[in-house]
Design a protein around this nucleic acid. Sequence first.
RNA 1: GGUCCCGUAGCCAAGUGGCUAAGGCAAUGGACUGCAACUCCGUGAUCACCGGUUCGAAUCCGGUCGGGACCUCCA
Length: 444
Amino acid sequence: MKIYNTLTNQLETFTPIHKDTVNIYVCGPTVYNYIHIGNARPVIFFDVVRRYFEHKQYTVNFVSNFTDVDDKVITKALEDQTTELEVANKFIDAFYKDAARVGSSTKYLAPRVTEYMSAIISYIERLVEQGYAYQVDGDVYFRVTKVSDYGILSGRKIDDLIEGSRIEVNNKKENPLDFTLWKKTNTGITWPSPFGEGRPGWHTECVAMIDEIFGGKIDIHGGGSEIKFPHHENEIAQHRAFHQDHIANIWMHNGQLNIDDKKMSKSEGRVILVKDLDVDYMGFRLFTLSTHYRSPINYTDEVLDAYVKDWERMRRVYKQTFYHLDLKESLDVSPVVSENLKAIELRFMDAMDHDFNTANAITELQNLVKFTNQTLRQKSSSEELKACIELFDTFFNILGLYPGVTPLNASDKAIYMAWTDARKNKDFDKADCLREKLSEKGIL
RNA sequence: GGUCCCGUAGCCAAGUGGCUAAGGCAAUGGACUGCAACUCCGUGAUCACCGGUUCGAAUCCGGUCGGGACCUCCA
């Protein structure tokens, strides 16, 4: 299995640190608002990564945090005249709903920054003790020059960053690139610490939680490409300060999602929230997986519609095949797998093995659709159709697509049979009436 | 100003040195059909442009044009 490592900028063969186990951490959302469709991309993609590893029989320890304390959460709490906790609770709840909507599992460890405050504070203390951080007036800053190859992830040099940068002047810092570990403040929620009352900076929470939860280096660290610098760069720097080693073997960054070829922007009114998306969410999921994860993806209503249609086609053939077997009481027959199906499965897995090429995997899913339709029309055996269903289940499970098709109850079966009979007897009025009924029930 | 990415048919998109450049949507011709839907079969590209390397390039190198990202909170 090959994965593109954005730390080394090359495709690497994946080798887990601990046999048969994958430890993966993905930077999660700051919970001050509903997530938009761009936020949903990593939520969907890394869910597929987890699913694929699980399909390959790995034990996957998947962790993705909630940033529930920072300026935006505090501002929101002040605006709404409520507490940071209330704001966080509200949007964490909303996040879970949205994640479930787009078909991503929410059953993973999701630590909140506020729950790890003591770990974060002691992490900062250790950085100070070892000379990697310094205190000024109750603030604590990280000393970037103390880490030898700062900029290794984003391919930048300290000098380049300073030159022509728009970094605000802060006389407290030794170096303009030094970043805040602890911020002295009296606005919003604060915590006591050896450095004084305040709250942590954004960049320490992830490393501290990774240290606390995984106890060392992880296999994969993921997130959006736009937080490569400075956030991930700073994570690497802090971890190296302690461990003289990288925090993760592999860094995976997903590309951005744009709308009409432009970055989403609140101020320009170019934002679409997941909860406001008025389409089948499985179609949206398919859309986000139709482009390789490292490439930017451009959202337009038309393109989304095309994938919603594509999803309907997939679901339709699955449903027809499933009911076909159900009506023949053949859902439990043993599958007979043809060479064609074996080839489709092989190509699907090859695509996934090659840096999670979901676009090519979806092509094989489309091939399966066509093949199943052909098999269905050829009046093939139930055993052959069962093999199609099982392969669909495998693919859907890896990609996180849910057709939501369950066995028919006795009365629905009776209606279906009556419809078939009516057509046979050329009683078309009755047939059309029954067809309408079946259609309303979503069976046709 | 600095760093980097991208430009493949009307649209989306895979392929990153080698047989006739995957696949989907749209369009269009046909088949199937009680009607409709569904479905199946067929039809489309000198890979932005110019130059170079090579026996051979969409794929590598240089340049031009166009689009975008990061350097500041941002998934």
